[in-house]
Design a protein around this nucleic acid. Structure first.
Length: 586
DNA sequence: GCCGTTTTCGGCCCGACTGTTTTCAGTCG
């Protein structure tokens, strides 16, 4: 993650949260390679994580407020302030001067940690990936104390295959792989339970590797079978209780085997996040308890571990949902008995962003209605693209008027289900909408979105969205940042300003459930909630089956602490209409 | 570098696996 490139000098010197976090991580890497106090290194990593998961912009925070953040004291607050305003800080500049910044890249090679990287620099003056590869080819690595032939060979392979590394997989791509592997594990004799843990269970938008957990009724060779199954490209580790492989797809899968009585402790442990677990174990420590993947222990006596709830209970806490386990305040909330009751799929009554064949969807209006009813929904909004988006056969005013009439006719035949009349109107570069008010005013809701000029500077892009919301017919801002996972970075916008403007104008913000969007992300959901703006969890479905994407949106919403009351489309239709009408009257 | 109903110093999460060793350090999750 931390690379020298991640903090390349931006146009203006100021850095946003993610860049500040990357800079802090880079300092941690450089300090670690330099042999600094490991706890000092940890302080920088903790600060990086804290800054990276903040929903508010560091840039706008006074130093005293920074100082109040957990794990950030006066010193780090000063460095963060310097990074935020000038783009660098004295320590970072000094560390980069002392060691080639490229040296942090070497930490990404499996098997190379800070000590070995430092040893290679000392013995062979290696500070870049190229130098490392050459040394491995020449057989010079093995001469360094602590290195051998095998490690040298692995380093050579890893440097050659670097393109394939550090890849993350979309949740929607990883989930079926996990399901198939789990089915295989359950078929192994002696296997009791097989479940997925890790970031998949926490419903992160992307998954770095799969963590699978198995309990066994009796001793068996489940790890041996796991590592030798078809589809495994490389075996990274193979022990009695743990196996680790890389699949042909490049995805890493880690398998852990624990006894049945440890299931809860192991599931808790391997679900993570790492930061959550560290904080939890610290709580245990304060009570004289040791928490590990086998249970909770007082001295050598085991006092909990069969269920996850028993682990949390041992430190005086209620059960914490996996999606919340990021060390973003959930432990405090648990202690104070104010954990949110998270949104559930069954809470949703409708979907406010749906396409049909009329623009770029694949199913007819009738088919989309049937698909929605089959899934227990009470309403959907048909929101085709507007005319600017010609590649999607966007509707002009005339075609939209025809669709409005068609929906009116259809609604007259429906019982217990309603089709809302909408549009996904393009927000033009100047913030105007792509269709005239004369037709927009006939709609139940106007969903607005950006589909071009993603590259505007922050001020202009933000203004563009604010102006769009100033239109009295505007209801809902769709996929607000426009990001596509692995393909397109989020637009540079001041999201907090956008959300506040939405509140003032009586508008709403979408959480788009398409697996490559998941936009808003979790921390942005938290921010919307804090600002009192309802989030609409929609699918943007382009076919009936895509309505099922909503489960990914619900996962992201749960990660954002959203409850039923925080979500617009949990409202029954009679509750929804006044909310939409209010936006239309502004 | 941070932090404190065991406070201003002395702590800071825990275990499996690997490779290079000959009892263990380093890495990883």
């Amino acid at each position: 993650m931390p690379t020298a490139n991640a903090v390349a000098p931006p146009r203006r010197q100021a850095l946003v949260n993610a860049q500040i976090a990357a800079a802090l991580d880079e300092m941690a890497d450089l300090l670690e390679i330099g042999g600094a106090n490991p706890f000092r290194v940890r302080a920088y990593r903790n600060a990086a994580r804290t800054v990276g998961s903040l929903s508010a912009s560091v840039h706008a925070m006074p130093e005293a407020e920074l100082d109040d953040l957990p794990g950030i004291g006066a010193d780090l607050a000063g460095k963060i302030r310097q990074l935020a305003t000038t783009g660098t800080c004295d320590l970072l500049a000094q560390l980069r001067k002392e060691a080639s910044p490229a040296i942090t890249e070497l930490l990404k090679i499996p098997g190379l940690g800070p000590h070995r990287v430092a040893a290679l620099r000392k013995a062979l003056d290696i500070t870049t990936m190229d130098q490392l590869q050459r040394a491995a080819k020449d057989g010079r690595i093995r001469s360094v104390r602590g290195f051998g032939e095998k490690l040298e060979k692995e380093i050579l392979q890893a440097t050659a295959a670097r393109v394939d590394q550090a890849r993350r997989f979309k949740l929607a791509d990883a989930a079926p792989v996990a399901d198939a592997l789990l089915a295989g594990l359950r078929a192994v004799p002696g296997v009791d339970q097989a479940v997925a843990a890790g970031s998949l269970r926490r419903r992160r938008d992307t998954v770095g590797d799969l963590d699978l957990l198995v309990t066994v009724r009796h001793d068996n060779d489940v790890v041996a079978q796991f590592v030798s199954q078809p589809g495994v490209r490389q075996v990274l580790a193979h022990g009695h209780t743990r196996g680790s492989v890389i699949l042909d797809s490049g995805m890493q899968v880690d398998l852990r085997v624990v006894p049945r009585e440890s299931f809860g402790a192991a599931l808790q442990y391997f679900t993570g996040s790492k930061a959550h677990n560290i904080a939890l174990r610290r709580l245990g420590q304060e009570r004289g308890l040791k928490i590990n993947e086998y249970g909770v222990f007082r001295d050598s006596q085991r006092i909990a571990g069969a269920t996850e709830a028993s682990v949390y209970r041992s430190v005086g806490l209620p059960y914490i949902e996996p999606e919340l386990r990021e060390d973003r305040g959930e432990l405090d909330a648990a202690r104070e008995r104010r954990l949110p009751r998270l949104l559930e799929l069954a809470d949703l009554r409708g979907d406010l962003h749906v396409h049909t064949k009329e623009s770029d969807g694949r199913d007819t209006l009738q088919r989309m209605v049937e698909a929605a009813r089959e899934r227990g929904l009470k309403y959907i909004a048909i929101t085709e693209h507007s005319k600017r988006l010609t590649v999607a056969r966007g509707l002009d005013a005339k075609r939209l008027a025809q669709q409005i009439d068609e929906i009116d006719r259809l609604n007259a035949t429906l019982d217990g289900f309603t089709v809302l009349k909408g549009i996904e109107v393009d927000i033009l570069e100047d913030g105007k909408l792509d269709l005239p008010d004369t037709v927009l005013r006939r709609l139940d809701l106007v969903v607005g979105a950006i589909h071009h000029r993603f590259d505007l500077p922050r001020d202009k892009q933000t203004e563009r969205l604010l102006r769009a919301m100033d239109n009295k017919h505007f209801s809902l801002l769709a996929h607000p940042t426009g990001r596509l996972i692995d393909q397109r970075a989020p637009c540079d916008i001041d999201l907090q300003r956008v959300v506040r403007h939405a509140r003032e104008r009586g508008c709403f913000i979408e959480l788009n459930s398409q697996p490559d969007r998941l936009d808003l992300i979790d921390t942005a959901c938290q921010m919307a909630k804090a600002e009192g703006v309802l989030v609409s969890v929609d699918t943007d479905a382009h076919s009936g089956p895509e309505l099922d994407f909503v489960r990914f949106g619900v996962g992201q919403a749960r990660r954002g602490w959203l409850q039923k009351a925080d979500v617009l489309n949990t409202r029954e239709l009679h509750e929804l209409r006044p909310l939409l009408a209010r936006t239309m009257q502004v």
